[in-house]
């Protein structure tokens, strides 16, 4: 399949007349964005963990209440950029008003594990990046890839291709700081031929790309935004890690 079948974007689905469709769309948006939002508030707005957690909850509640997402115009900005601009405005207003009251009402129930997010921040390889706007993008990519890997594992389990996933996990997810194994070493460890390792990686990477593109399709609001996000995600800046199998 050359590219993912067109799905309604989550932005469109938040405008659905069906309540369950709306709820699921909101859950998807929150799942993709809550960690970038939390970490952005922690680093750019220098909030302590509790304040950032409160404001993250409040941001999604408020965006829901004020229908900020429903007002999004895809011809004017990327959804991700729009959300970050909204977040800056929201954080600025919150700081001015020093309001921290919890909101109730129509809150989407997505468990946000702030303790995990805080632990992840402690594990950042570097310190706070010079451009915290890039941080928002990187955290968004991290959330996107994490879901992509989870979807890939599910696909491998359901289709009986766990050995393929194992090759992928050992090669493309390797981050132990000692470099990735060679194809030959991987083949030896897993009892496969080098050719099988090569073929497994090619096939599962194609599936991984497909799953990421489906997510991107869901999280963007137009063909142009989708292509632009995909180009950035898969563009040359992403490729420094390369493939050192040979």
């Amino acid at each position: 399949m050359p590219f993912p079948a067109t799905r309604l974007s989550v932005v469109e689905r938040t405008r659905s007349g069906d309540e369950e469709t709306r709820r699921l769309a909101w859950a998807t948006i929150i799942e993709a964005y809550w960690k970038p939002v939390y970490k952005y508030l922690r680093l750019k707005w220098s909030l302590d963990p509790d304040a950032a957690a409160d404001l993250t909850q409040e941001f999604f509640t408020t965006t829901l209440e004020k229908e900020i997402v429903e007002r999004f115009d895809p011809t004017r900005a990327r959804f991700r950029t729009y959300l970050r601009i909204c977040l800056d405005g929201f954080a600025s207003n919150a700081r001015k008003a020093e309001r921290r009251q919890k909101r109730g009402g129509d809150v989407v129930q997505v468990p946000l594990d702030f303790r995990t997010a805080e632990g992840e921040m402690a594990r950042h390889e570097g310190s706070v990046p010079a451009d915290v706007d890039d941080l928002f993008y990187r955290e968004w990519v991290r959330a996107l890839l994490a879901r992509g890997v989870a979807d890939l594992r599910l696909w491998a389990e359901q289709s009986g291709r766990l050995s393929m996933f194992e090759v992928f996990a050992r090669y493309d997810l390797a981050d132990d700081g000692e470099g990735r194994p060679t194809y030959a070493a991987l083949a030896r460890d897993l009892g496969l031929t080098t050719a099988t390792v090569t073929n497994h990686l090619a096939a599962i990477r194609r599936q991984f790309r497909q799953l990421l593109l489906e997510q991107l399709r869901e999280l963007t609001a137009s063909d142009q935004e989708f292509e632009s996000e995909a180009a950035r995600l898969f563009g040359s800046r992403a490729l420094d890690a390369g493939d050192d199998r040979r």
Binding site: R138, V141, G148, D175, R209, L233, A238, D240, A241, G242
Partner: peptide, 13 residues
């Protein structure tokens, strides 16, 4: 990790 992010993006591309 950041390293895995780079590897995964490169793998998908």
């Amino acid at each position: 990790s950041d390293r895995a992010i780079d590897q995964l993006r490169a793998a998908a591309a």
